[in-house]
């Protein structure tokens, strides 16, 4: 009704901060490289040209070639496809399931809440990597296994966060005001509680995506992720680890890609928190 008056989305406002702009630009670059990899690169990611193996960076191969003579930059771009999409989709599934569980537990309380809390606290006490390894062992290596493993590994985090948000917001007077007007549970959950709980969950999801990229790379490094010849940053590092002294670029560049992308996600997440500025909108400074 008053769309024009709503402030610019927080994501855009995050770009107005120098650090946020730099981190955001890198993320956009990586995402664009992943999407447009076939158009950007003259090479195929899976054609082996053994006589060109182990080349250092050059004009023809900007980052050099790997042990099968494949262009490293091309494989990095295709690797970004796997790493980013698996991490992002896994976190998306995790957020959707976690928000549903957490909102239901926090709003309705009772026996269901206690059950959810116990299960969540149990999984919370294990490291994510352990949960992920167990699940991949059950489902089997490959993209699907990694996807499910990462989703489940972060489920507890989003369930807990959403539940805590809902329980805090439930006590606000505007919820009581809505009830005094005759609002039912649906209105209160979907028009008041969830919209107010969303911002912190999204920021946390953003930061978890960074962790998920590392987890995906770790599983890939163990050979549990995408299977050859499909590249992922983790499996590329795994292949390069044996050739560390012969051709350091093979492990160095995917390692840098993971590191810089995860740092960028964290910095952008920080800028997003500052741009969202949730607290100061509740009350004016005293």
């Amino acid at each position: 009704m008053t769309a024009a008056a709503r402030p610019a989305p927080a994501v855009l406002r995050a770009f107005r901060r120098p650090v946020g702009a730099l981190a955001g630009a890198w993320l956009l670059l990586v995402i664009a490289a992943a999407i447009f990899a076939p158009l950007l690169s003259p090479y195929e990611y899976d054609i082996q040209t053994l006589k060109e193996a182990y080349q250092p960076p050059s004009a023809a191969h900007w980052l050099g070639t790997d042990e099968f003579g494949r262009d490293l930059l091309t494989r990095l771009m295709y690797g970004a496809r796997t790493s980013l999409s698996v991490s992002a989709i896994a976190i998306l599934i995790s957020v959707l399931c976690g928000m549903t569980l957490g909102a239901a537990a926090g709003y309705f309380g009772g026996r269901f809440d206690r059950l959810v809390t116990v299960v969540v606290d149990l999984t919370w006490s294990f490291p994510e990597i352990l949960i992920a390894l167990i699940l991949v062992a059950i489902i089997g290596p490959g993209t699907t296994g990694v996807l499910v493993a990462i989703s489940v590994a972060y489920l507890a985090q989003f369930t807990r966060l959403t539940r805590a948000q809902i329980m805090t917001l439930k006590g606000e007077t505007f919820i009581e005001a809505a009830r005094s007007l005759g609002a039912g549970s649906g209105h209160i959950l979907f028009r008041h509680l969830l919209p107010n709980a969303l911002a912190p969950v999204l920021v946390s999801a953003m930061l978890a995506t960074g962790d998920a990229i590392i987890l995906e790379a770790t599983l890939g490094f163990f050979g549990l992720g995408a299977q050859p010849p499909t590249p992922s940053w983790g499996s590329m590092m795994s292949a390069g680890s044996a050739l560390l002294f012969k051709s350091p670029g093979i492990i160095l560049f995917p390692g840098l890609a993971v590191a810089i992308t995860v740092i960028a996600i964290n910095l952008f997440g920080d800028a997003l928190i500052a741009a969202l500025d949730i607290r100061s909108r509740m009350r004016p400074p005293q």
Partner: peptide, 25 residues
């Protein structure tokens, strides 16, 4: 309500607040 700060949803515009009774009903 007593507290004019927490009695209005921070994500609602003033128009959203005063039309909420119609939406609810």
């Amino acid at each position: 309500f007593q507290d004019p700060y927490s009695s209005l949803d921070p994500r609602y515009t003033v128009a959203d607040v005063v039309t909420e009774p119609f939406v609810v009903q």
